[in-house]
Design a binder for these strands. Structure first.
Lengths: 336, 336
DNA sequence: TTGAAAGCGATACCAG
DNA sequence: CTGGTATCGCTTTCAA
């Protein structure tokens, strides 16, 4: 079928071992022999069989990526960053989606381990650290992206979510909002961190934190727009109603804006809105949306780099944690 | 390290071959032996090493997917569909992005072939059929998605783009538009088909096709919004200016709408707009965007199914072609 | 500097 | 029904 090391070796009257060594830049090989081998490799356009190599070395040069939802722009961008960085280093990327379901995610992890990936990158939807023990047991290095798990000491790269929450909330305060609400999640680290930032900002500026202005929702990705819409409807029924809202994500914010406009209120005069994620279409929305930018693609790149270091490292390094600095992008939804 | 067939065989006093057969449901195995083996497999949570299997069988159970840009919602959705369908059948998905660059795409194809994927799914940016000869030479089955290549007889699944163009254009005609423009691409099959549909609709309704109302742009994905914006600016300078525009994609349409509003015209009263792709956020845009829905996720599912049939088939079937029926989704940008 | 031999973990063919 | 043996294509170890 295709060319094998043997063939090259035979053609040149050397052994397969020699070819193998040339291929991997093994140093004790005569410069002349090396040239001839290289020459022939090019001629035949030879490419070593990665499966055979994997079998012999135990390394597949494959990295697994598991995300909750590819359709969500944030994860698509992370994936893009990961993909590009890995390819540059000759690693392949095998992906799958957990569909925001912890059980699926566990299955996917097992699949990936069964495939002997060299490392894993996971934006996890787990609530407990349990599934990660299996990864550790297999000694497969992994990096958590975006979401961290309480009580799990793991390599992590994400956004400084507390800061994200503070940035957004302080901005709303600066714009004169008095009753600032938050539509967030319930168990993701991103959700609790952003909420913490929101709280901190309020307190720091002498505001009272009122629990009735804080919504905890679960459907953060799949049906996020609808979730934001309903949450906002509920908030608008409060008296006095909020005059500013920091939303967990841009889709949530999109739904929230819809609800506000539908009730006949103006954005931002009556209710100012800030989202998080800074999706590409934020500026094209009905009311251009202020949002916290997370540099998702960079996050993917960093995750990939981290993973490659782990793969090439001695496996004994301490778990590292890295957080990207979020930035607020102002638009009409909060800043006329 | 991990459990191997050997271990199970030794524990049970049978041969590795027997275990192997049980694993693959080979029929000539005693029911009792089978039970014992299955039992032990479960106990040890044994999983066969796919690399060893791949080496022996030549099948990796890996499918490669190459898309122009993961960030583009359309391709993210296709990917989602592919991923889900493949996983159900125990196949892994390895993806990469060509970044809308033909040369990268060729490299990616080579990478995938080098990795011995069992099949390929490609949304190609190639202008010629050349690179596909290499795939054919290796006897790796492949399916083209979304974009077809002139003169290449290959398995294909995409949208009925001619119909998409007709639907959009006929709708604009029905809404009373008299001078309908088109912002499209220059060499993609999707672009020329949608353009053909646009032309056909005009002619069929007794309109004249005026070339000055037809824009051909290249940057259809990366900087699509900006492309649409500039193209529309140009169109608005024409006299008489168009009163309806069918745009190649939703991002293009988004940019076009921006340009229209910025010049002080109303949508749809002065200029009606229809996009294509029906992105999730279409209804949340400044003016909710009418768009042709392409069922991208279904497209991904179909591509995956097709590829699996090819992998399991005899390799002798004729190239098949399948087109999904597009549907027009009306919103305020064309339908007050 | 080079190569022979022994795996890596499965599958395939054929004999018993 | 069961299993010995060769094989897949490459790496590793060690002797020459």
């Amino acid at each position: 079928m295709s060319v094998r090391m043997k063939d090259i070796a035979r053609d040149l009257g050397v052994s397969a071992v020699t070819v193998s060594k040339v291929l991997r830049n093994h140093r004790d090989i005569g410069p002349e022999t090396r040239e001839r081998v290289l020459q022939r490799i090019k001629e035949l356009n030879y490419q070593p069989n990665p499966n055979a190599r994997a079998l012999a070395t135990g390394k597949t040069h494959l990295v697994g990526l598991i995300v909750p939802d590819l359709q969500h722009q944030f994860f698509a961008q992370v994936t893009k960053g990961v993909s590009r960085t890995l390819r540059k280093q000759g690693y392949g990327l095998i992906i799958s989606s957990s569909e925001e379901n912890a059980e699926f995610e566990r299955q996917e992890i097992d699949q990936m381990l069964a495939r002997h990936v060299d490392a894993l990158i996971i934006a996890s939807t787990q609530k407990t650290a349990q599934s990660f023990n299996r990864i550790t047991a297999r000694r497969v290095p992994y990096v958590l992206v975006d979401r961290k798990l309480a009580g799990l000491k793991a390599n992590f790269i994400g956004t400084d979510d507390v800061r994200a929450g503070m940035l957004a909330t302080e901005h709303l305060i600066a714009k004169g909002c008095r009753r600032i609400a938050h539509i967030g999640g319930d168990y993701l680290s991103t959700a609790s961190d952003r909420l913490a930032g929101y709280r901190a900002a309020l307190i720091q500026h002498g505001f009272e934190v009122s629990e009735k202005y804080i919504c905890h929702r679960t459907q953060l990705d799949d049906a996020a727009v609808a979730t934001g819409y309903r949450a906002m409807q509920a908030l608008l029924k409060l008296k006095p109603r909020p005059d500013g809202v920091f939303c967990f994500s841009d889709p949530i914010a999109t739904g929230a804006m819809q609800a506000v406009l539908e009730r006949g209120f103006r954005i931002p005069q009556d209710v100012a809105i800030v989202g998080c994620g800074n999706v590409l279409y934020a500026s094209a929305l009905r009311v251009p949306l202020s949002s916290v930018n997370q540099e998702s693609e960079t996050m993917g790149e960093c995750a990939a780099k981290m993973v490659l270091e782990l793969v090439n490292g001695d496996g004994k390094t301490e778990a590292r944690e890295m957080r990207l600095r979020p930035e607020l992008v102002l638009r009409a939804s909060s800043d006329l």
